[in-house]
């Protein structure tokens, strides 16, 4: 769990306090901390003068606005048809072996979370993943190991 501190205030300064500011604010929190804590959502609700249930309702609609604990680096593997056909299974196994977590889990040091997602728009270079915002494509087990190693040493 992280402390939101002044982040929500900073984000509302930047994006405003209208209902339409909600998404950019939540996105800003996730960009910094990977997921939304209850505390963060309540803070946002207070700042925008809307109910916390609505903040949660909106956040939980969007796959990337996680309300469960996530690691610093969120790995999302595309599970849609082309990636599935082109070796997504192998990539998952490789990452699961390497990080000792299953899909849906987070490493105990809170560095990595492994999730599946729907088509991320790189089907011609399948299989593809996102690590936080960055796409990695045309993956092989070897390639993905190298990529994740890079994040471990970041």
């Amino acid at each position: 769990m992280y402390q939101v501190g002044n982040l929500v205030k900073e984000l509302t300064e930047k994006h405003g306090r209208l209902r339409e500011s909600l998404m950019p604010i939540l996105q800003g929190i996730v960009e910094r901390h990977s997921y939304l804590t209850d505390e963060a959502m309540v803070e946002v609700a207070k700042e925008l003068d809307i109910s916390a249930a609505e903040v949660y309702g909106t956040a939980s609609f969007y796959t990337f606005l996680d309300t469960k604990v996530r690691g610093k680096y969120v790995i999302r593997i595309c599970k849609t048809i082309t990636c599935s056909m082109k070796g997504k299974g192998e990539i998952i196994e490789t990452i699961e072996d390497m990080l000792k977590i299953k899909v849906g889990e987070t490493t105990s040091d809170r560095m990595f979370s492994l999730l599946e997602t729907n088509c991320i728009g790189w089907c011609h270079k399948a299989p593809a993943i996102l690590i936080n915002d960055l796409p990695y494509t045309e993956l092989s087990p070897e390639k993905v190991v190298e990529i994740i190693k890079g994040y471990m040493h970041k």
Binding site: L18, R19, E20, S21, L22, M23, L26, Q27, V30, G57, T58, F61, Y62, T63, F64, L65, T117, N118
Partner: peptide
């Protein structure tokens, strides 16, 4: 933020307005 339905035009508007799509 990851929701296919937001490509549907009116869902997209809802999303811009800070709501569920």
């Amino acid at each position: 933020s990851g929701a296919y339905i937001c490509g549907e035009e009116s869902a997209l508007f809802e999303s811009i307005q800070g709501d569920r799509g």
